[in-house]
């Protein structure tokens, strides 16, 4: 029995090791290409470990391209998307968690339903609509459009989080003469901070990563988000893989940073969001 279990263990760990390799190798290949000097990037056969380390591609993408501008644009757009979505979703999530009102079930169900409608569907009408409203080629327009990606998810995440906060404290505050909004502001929101952090990280990552809406809704170079700038590195038939991989490393840095410093919140959101929504 124990011998069999040991064999099982070995198999399990071999599998985990293989999957770890599968997960990390493409990312490793990007990182390692980014720090190779230009000649080594296209050396044949390719080198698994860089023979020489070089930061030339990073210097290039930051000084000779629009990457810096793209990062600023993405920070503004993703940051604003997060703030707007967090405000709207926390109010709605609180209402869904704490009140029973007519239409609640229907509303909740439709918000969930919206989450399943592909964002692809709204691309054409959003383009036409924003064109009419003068929101085409503007950060405001992009922030509004991104609400369609993040709001349903955030509303559910926050409702679930509020559900997990006991109501007794709020009741005590209500008895002390606080208004409902006062309770939300002074009691519930501070208690929900971890949940808000989780929601904020999600909104930020989704907005940071998005590119299809940005591709259609942003027309001028100075408003391009970081994802669109990365696309610029790909030319018709010659791709400068050194510069492209360096830009990709920069593009995924914030997301990986969140994974490292805020792993707990991220996983809480993923697991919580997964089961409840």
């Amino acid at each position: 029995m124990s011998a069999r279990r040991r064999v099982g263990s070995v198999l399990v760990y071999a599998f985990l090791a293989a999957y770890t390799l599968f997960t990390l190798v493409p990312i490793y290949w990007v990182f390692v290409t980014a720090v190779k000097p230009a000649e080594e990037v296209v050396a044949f056969p390719p080198t698994l470990l860089p023979r020489t380390l070089s930061l030339e591609h990073f210097a290039f993408v930051f000084t000779k391209t629009r990457l810096g501008q793209g990062i600023v644009n993405s920070l503004i757009v993703a940051g604003s998307t997060t703030v707007v979505a967090l405000i709207a979703a926390s109010l709605a999530g609180y209402a869904f968690s704490r009140f029973r009102f007519r239409g609640r079930g229907v509303l909740l169900g439709s918000v969930l339903g919206l989450y399943l409608i592909p964002p692809l569907i709204s691309v054409i009408p959003l383009f036409l609509l924003f064109n009419k409203l003068g929101l085409l080629n503007s950060r405001v327009g992009l922030v509004l459009a991104y609400q369609s990606l993040v709001l349903p998810l955030l509303t559910f995440l926050l409702r679930n989080y509020f559900d997990g906060i006991p109501t007794e404290i709020e009741e005590a505050a209500l008895l002390d003469g606080c208004t409902r909004l006062g309770v939300l502001r002074r009691v519930t929101l501070p208690l929900a901070l971890p949940g808000l952090a989780t929601a904020a990280i999600f909104a930020f990552i989704l907005a940071w990563n998005e590119f299809v809406l940005a591709l259609i809704l942003i027309l001028s170079d100075d408003l391009k988000t970081v994802q669109l700038v990365i696309m610029e590195f790909v030319k018709l038939y010659r791709i400068d893989w050194g510069a492209l991989t360096a830009a990709m490393v920069v593009g995924m840095a914030p997301v990986l940073l969140f994974l490292i410093v805020a792993q707990r919140y991220l996983l809480a959101g993923l697991l919580g969001g997964a089961t409840k929504s």
Binding site: L24, W29, V30, W208, V234, M248, L259, L267
Partner: peptide, 22 residues
Amino acid sequence: RPVFIVPWILSAIIIGYSWIWM
């Protein structure tokens, strides 16, 4: 777990070009 979720939180652009390169 944190290692395994990395691909899921990357952008389509980065995923796409990573694999083109692979």
